[in-house]
Design a protein around this nucleic acid. Structure first.
Length: 561
RNA sequence: UGGGACGUCGUCUAAUGGUAAGACUGCAGACUCUGGAUCUGCGUAUCGGGGUUCGAGUCCCUGCGUCCCAGCCA
């Protein structure tokens, strides 16, 4: 991954790596890995992990592997593998041809289990899941030894082999590590290493009917790949002694595990289980719904990899459990989009504006700049005519004090067009303004006034005859509360779903955007950033609002209420 | 409750015994053919109590608070 544009700030993992490199630990190598389970789509929390693992490896001249932790065939699918590969690539993670799977190592992991049995460090246990739970003890009480704990090596070897060959039904037996049922660390109380699962695996098919537990497999996978720094999240801190135990008993290469804080964001959640529920129950339209905190959802919404990376870099790495404000993410998305998105004019909620003194059939193609932040983006022309659409919210018949936009008698600038002055309005039976009439000053063509007179507002517009109809999807946060899990007793997070998280409207957009490919990003001037959705058809573009622009007027208006 | 970890502005992160800093947010202003962008200014923090030290956010003791662990999930 290329170093991010934001200046790198120190973090404790980088410090550890730098120190290790300086001291010659791990033969002076840095080799990390990003180890997702293919049981769902990647989310922005994974983006942070990707940024750390690929970013640090790149920074220190090392490598980072992509490895799938696919030890549970019941939850894992090829669809997830494919989406994860796509998302990591999109974010800029450079894993070369180093795509690995825990399942690649199943035979080796099995052989190691046999080695542990032979060393008297593992045994086949006939207790049911329920019985194991009951004999594990709890936070204050030690556990009880399994009655099968002292089986002979020969018997364990035979039984384990028979487990593998499929003689027993699911759950009948497990292979357990023989450690210490009285350990204050529950992970050390003879944890299960293998369980019987007659399930088809997305890669190994029906080769196996026993599968290693994550805790028994993960550290060894890192060891096999000679990972120097195994970076993971805080909840695995308690598991580190177990991983170290396996590595030590086996006498194999020992990676160094470092734990960091998971990313939490306000108004959303990262639990894959809960995200899956949102998808399955139809609260959103798939994993890549633009309201989802998934990488694919954010991509579809118009977020950029650079914006996401800068956000991750600035959000930081520590061991403090916290919740980062969504505003920080949005800031970095806006910052990136501001320098790269092409500007166009699009009217979200059209109000007709007629210029009474403009020639009936005249059309002028006026120059407009594509990106004031980037002159190399050039210019385009936009059609101007007698009948236009402006934004409904840009006109007030009875303007409040700080409202600078159009109102009866007031002159404003139509961007790149002319100064116009409102002369009258047309209303419907309900008294709503349906049409605004203006006169224009031909001397202000292009938007400049030769006499130097000023105007307090510049507004966007489209020519009614030339505008394209577009569907626009406006998004708000998926949840109404900063913490979606903050619910009354007996309810779940779905109680906090925001009924207004998606609003679909019909907009009028300037013709230059016709035929834009999905994922093309624009700024609709004064309205926000928008991204062409994959549901678009040639005649009918669909835009997702990525994020609004900062809106000073909205703030003023809100305050006055 | 046993174990593990963590407590610095509203939020996220720096400060590695030596002037508590930055970003976001908020507020105020300048500028502007986007009430955008940009620029300027302002504000708020070391969980409490002891101790060590010339000097403590940092080290020690103690109290408090938060998070994680009792899956044959990862």
């Amino acid at each position: 991954m290329t170093p991010s544009a934001t200046p790198t700030q120190s973090n404790f993992i980088r410090d550890i790596m730098a120190a290790d490199l300086a001291s010659g630990k791990h033969e002076g190598r840095v080799h990390t890995r990003f180890p997702p389970e293919p049981n769902g789509y990647l989310h922005v929390g994974h983006a942070k992990s990707i940024n750390i693992n690929f970013g640090l490896a790149g920074e220190f001249g090392g490598r980072c592997n992509l490895r799938f932790d696919d030890t549970n065939p019941e939850k894992e699918e090829t669809e997830y593998v494919e989406s994860i590969i796509e998302d990591v690539k999109w974010l800029g993670g450079d894993f070369g041809d180093r795509i690995f799977y825990a399942s690649d190592y199943f035979q080796q992991i099995y052989d190691w289990a046999v080695q542990l049995i032979k060393a008297g460090k593992a045994y086949v246990c006939d207790l049911s899941a329920d019985e194991v739970r009951q004999t594990r003890g709890n936070f204050t009480e030690p556990g009880k030894d399994s009655p099968y704990r002292n089986r002979s090596v020969e018997e364990n070897l035979t039984l384990f082999e028979r487990m593998r060959s499929g003689e027993f039904p699911d759950g009948a037996r497990t292979l357990r590590a023989k450690i210490d049922m009285a350990s204050p660390n529950l992970n050390m109380r003879d944890p299960v290493m293998y369980r019987i699962l007659h399930a088809e695996h997305h890669r190994t098919g029906n080769t196996w009917c026993i599968y290693p537990m994550y805790d028994y497999a993960h550290g060894q996978c890192d060891s096999i790949e000679k990972i120097t720094h195994s970076i993971c999240t805080l909840e695995f801190e308690d598991h580190r002694p177990l991983y170290d135990w396996f590595i030590q008993q086996l006498g194999i290469y020992a990676p160094q595990q470092i734990e960091f804080d998971r990313l939490n964001l306000t108004y959303t959640m990262m639990s894959k289980r809960k995200l899956l529920k949102l998808v399955k129950d139809g609260h959103v339209n798939g994993w890549d719904d633009p309201r989802m905190p998934t990488i694919s959802g954010m991509r579809r919404r118009g977020y950029t990899p650079e914006g996401l990376r800068n956000f991750c870099a600035r959000q930081g790495v520590s061991k403090t459990n916290g919740i980062t404000e969504l505003a920080l993410l949005e800031y970095f998305i806006r910052e990136d989009l501001n320098r790269r998105a092409l500007r166009v004019m699009g009217v979200l909620r059209p109000l007709k504006l007629v210029i009474d003194n403009y020639p009936d059939d005249q059309v002028e193609w006026l120059d407009a700049v594509n990106n004031p932040e980037d002159v190399s983006a050039g210019t385009r022309t936009v059609p101007f005519s007698k009948a236009l659409y402006i934004e409904q919210e840009d006109f007030r018949e009875d303007p409040p004090k700080q409202f600078f936009r159009l109102s009866p008698g007031r002159e404003v600038r139509l961007r790149y067009g002319y100064f116009v002055t409102c002369t009258s309005v047309v209303k419907n039976a309900q008294g709503e303004v349906t049409e605004v009439h203006c006169t224009y000053d031909p001397a202000t063509r292009g938007g400049d006034s030769p006499d130097g007179r000023k105007v307090k507002s510049t507004m966007h517009w489209v020519s009614a005859a030339h505008a394209i109809d577009a569907e626009v999807r406006l998004y708000e946060t998926l949840f109404t509360k900063e913490d979606p899990n903050d619910v009354p007793e007996g309810q779940d997070f779905t109680a906090n779903l925001n009924p207004r998280s998606l609003e679909t409207i019909s907009a009028k957009v300037e013709p230059s955007v016709a035929g834009a490919a999905p994922l093309t990003r624009y700024q609709f001037e004064r309205m926000g950033y928008f991204c062409v959705d994959k549901d678009s058809t040639p005649g009918k573009p669909i835009f997702n609002r990525t994020v609004t622009l900062k809106d000073a007027w909205a703030k003023i208006e809100k305050k006055s209420k």
